[in-house]
Simulated assay, not measured.
Amino acid sequence: MTLRFLLALFLSLAALAPRAQAHEIRPAYLQIDEQTPHHYKLLWKVPTRDGMVQDIRPAFEPGFTLTPLPGESVVNGFVLFRYTLTGERALPGTVVKIDNLERTAIDALVEIRLLDGTRHSFLLKPRDSARLVPKAPSAWEVVTTYTRLGVEHILAGVDHLAFVAALILVVRGWPMLLKTVTAFTVAHSITLALATFGYVSLPSPPVEALIALSIVLIAVEAVHLRRGRESLATRWPWIVAFAFGLLHGLGFAGALREIGLPQGDIPLALLFFNIGVELGQLCFIALLSGLVALARRLVSLPRIAPVAAAYAIGAVAMFWVIQRLDGMFL
């Protein structure tokens, strides 16, 4: 029973390792800027995967003419296309669609900037690939769009979830867990905001490597705790969570730069992206706690299970460290 449990636990985590590139949520991005009445300039960014780009493109109602411009380019894993759009009428009140989006697993973030200063931001998804452009701006669009992006980002960020899982292994009692998670949230909110507004800037590769290393260190502390050796991380886990949360916030900022921010609503988008991250994090903690409680009711878990979990998380995180360090020097 114990051997089967340990093997299943390790294999399930190891299976995530090759896929656990940080910030896998990379929506396509469509920026529409009105240059003169009914004449627009478009930037269309499509994420690549394994060197391939999906055949998706913006589409508009009859009466609009979309003209591709030469000179597409590849920048940071995105292919950039540029277009001009000319319409017989204004864009608000018409439908914007992404052709073939339903055949992919990609979301598309649309940002529209009009001459009168009006801005619209909304998220198109494979099952909802068209949207009517509102005639009046709505802050609610920004709230819902960036909350959803925050939730999706954290739930797809296996490295960040692994850090949270490792933290749970070194925290004793729900009051301390709440304090620790709050400290982590406050810390990554600080650096996310500082990086977004340009006060802090670090290159992404070393940040990602250090994030993976932070998981390894917490996993090691979880093993030490089960062997009777206490440290700062086990006595005051909220301090360690705060320190490493500052680092993880820089990782979130890198993802947010890739996603893009509505220039007229940066504070609102930043706030609700962070709220989305926190909601996703709390959902993960609740799900993990529920699964552990269910497992304890159904089977007799071995006493070594927490140590095995810490070793499994640490092993996968060490793989990420090596992988990311290797990527830095290629």
Rank of each mutant, 00 (worst) to 15 (best):
L11T: 11
F64W: 07
A17Q: 10
L42N: 01
L43I: 12
V46D: 01
P18R: 09
R4D: 10
G51P: 01
T2A: 12
A59I: 04
A17I: 10
F60Y: 10
A20Y: 03
L3R: 12
P58G: 07
P18N: 07
Q54G: 12
A28I: 02
F60G: 04
H39N: 13
T2W: 12
R57Q: 14
A59W: 04
Q54H: 15
P58Y: 06
G51T: 07
A15R: 04
A20L: 05
P58E: 04
H39W: 14
M52V: 15
F5P: 00
T36A: 15
H39G: 09
L13H: 00
K41P: 03
L3E: 11
T2F: 12
L42W: 04
L69F: 10
F64Q: 04
R49I: 03
G51M: 05
L66C: 09
F60L: 07
R26Q: 00
A28T: 00
A20K: 01
D55L: 09
I56K: 02
D55C: 05
R26F: 02
D55W: 09
D55S: 11
Q54R: 15
K41E: 14
A8V: 11
Q54M: 13
I32A: 04
P47I: 05
L9N: 03
F10K: 00
M52F: 14
P27A: 00
L16T: 15
P27M: 04
A28W: 01
H23T: 05
Q54T: 14
A14Q: 06
I32T: 03
P68N: 07
F60E: 04
H38M: 14
